[in-house]
Design a binder for these strands. Structure first.
Lengths: 231, 231
DNA sequence: TACCATATTATGGCCTACCAAGATTATGCA
DNA sequence: TGCATAATCTTGGTAGGCCATAATATGGTA
């Protein structure tokens, strides 16, 4: 009661994540950073030992990652780290294009200068990270750029979908941003999105966002084919 | 060995779903058909008793449904059936529009008459179901229509996303298809999609698909506001 | 030696029982 | 009546065990 009367503005953000959430993050992270490789078996009892938690937790975590698409469950064999093929990667980029394009269009139609300003800030962070060869930073700030795109027009569900799909192509992302010229081309393409938004040009923003994803997809396909992109 | 030598053509499709999958389907179905209403608490031990399975299973099922967005987990209170507000429903329809529009465009660009034929067949099923006042059939065949749209161009990931989002607005779907004139308007709009695909008109197919979802969304908003649509 | 049938092991699916901690409700006393 | 304390409910988490199946090792026989 008294608490409610005082509002919840300064409520401390409970760091009290459950053990399950902690374990989930750990395992997801382990898959994303390559500690577990695609195709690796994820033996429940081994994970219990490695994580120091009970099987209950491990099983829930595996189920969760399964629904995220990071883990596949072979019948009568058990869970393995999911493998992504060319085609699926392409489909994921395509979906991102559709949704990010949609969000970009909505941002442009909002005619709110604060949006473009916020995006510019993320873009600046990305450029700095490229300059410092901080590739983890590039990824993080790129995510932040897109999160801004979605959250500025209150599309948190679409952002959730994009985010969910993005983790599955995480390793591709880290490879595409390292390819030749991407440090220049990437930001240039993203700046086009911001420009269109600032102009209030919905269709232009849509096209620019689509094009950015399309070029990332092309690079990813090249990487997956084992050859470097022609550029 | 001998089995493999004979191929796998007649392999029996394992009905051997795990207990967990069975329970998952049961609970999901119970939520979708309204046995559990939005906001209802889902007490683990009660579910154990009702389903006749252990807490292990129930917990995994609840986690899974949580990641599907059908169940929400209140900290220190436990899981409840997720409630969908206006805005989220609108967002989901919007995403469906973007993805179904994308799929429709791809179908049109395929220039394969078989696609339009297959869609026409689903459309016929929908009309028949409407005629017989078989609303469950309408929903099923509508899903089948869209599944065709995605699977004909091998976009199973996008279909998965649409499917995932669709269960969350299931109750809205059953209400929208029952509104006045929807039995005529719905099929007419879908026929426009098929026509555009048959003509190879990608942009037209995209627009038609978007429009179909948009009108469903508008009806849903009206239903959510408590009033019937003006039509 | 080659081969087949039988243990053994590894592992997932599933269960019961238990404890701790937080929230809620009941209870009893001043 | 009002407040503090106790009982209860429920989830988070643990431990350990049972069973079924698949893969692997083992050993005996032709």
């Amino acid at each position: 009661m008294t608490d409610d009367a005082h509002g919840t503005a300064i409520r401390v953000e409970r760091p009290a994540k459950t053990l399950r959430e902690l374990a989930l993050d750990k395992v997801r992270e382990a898959i994303l950073n390559g500690y577990f490789r695609p195709g690796d078996r994820l033996v429940e009892r081994d994970l219990c030992a490695q994580l120091g938690v009970s099987r209950t937790i491990v099983r829930e975590v595996l189920r969760h990652l399964e629904s995220e698409g990071l883990v596949a469950n072979l019948p009568n064999k058990g869970p393995i780290v999911a493998q992504l093929n060319h085609d699926e990667a392409k489909q994921i980029y395509e979906i991102r294009g559709a949704l990010e394009g949609m969000a970009a269009r909505l941002c442009a139609e909002q005619r709110n200068p604060a949006i473009a300003d916020a995006l510019d800030k993320s873009l600046e962070d990305i450029r700095n990270s490229y300059r410092d060869k901080d590739m983890a930073g590039v990824l993080a700030h790129t995510s932040s750029f897109y999160q801004t795109l979605f959250s500025m027009v209150d599309r948190h569900i679409a952002w959730g979908v994009v985010n969910l799909l993005t983790v599955r192509i995480n390793h591709l992302r880290s490879m595409t941003i390292k390819t030749q010229n991407r440090d220049v081309q990437g930001p240039v393409q993203m700046a086009r999105i911001v420009d269109a938004i600032r102009r209030g040009d919905g269709e232009g923003a849509y096209q620019a966002a689509m094009q950015h994803v399309a070029s990332a997809s092309a690079i990813a396909q090249a990487v997956l084919s084992g050859r470097q992109p022609i550029d």
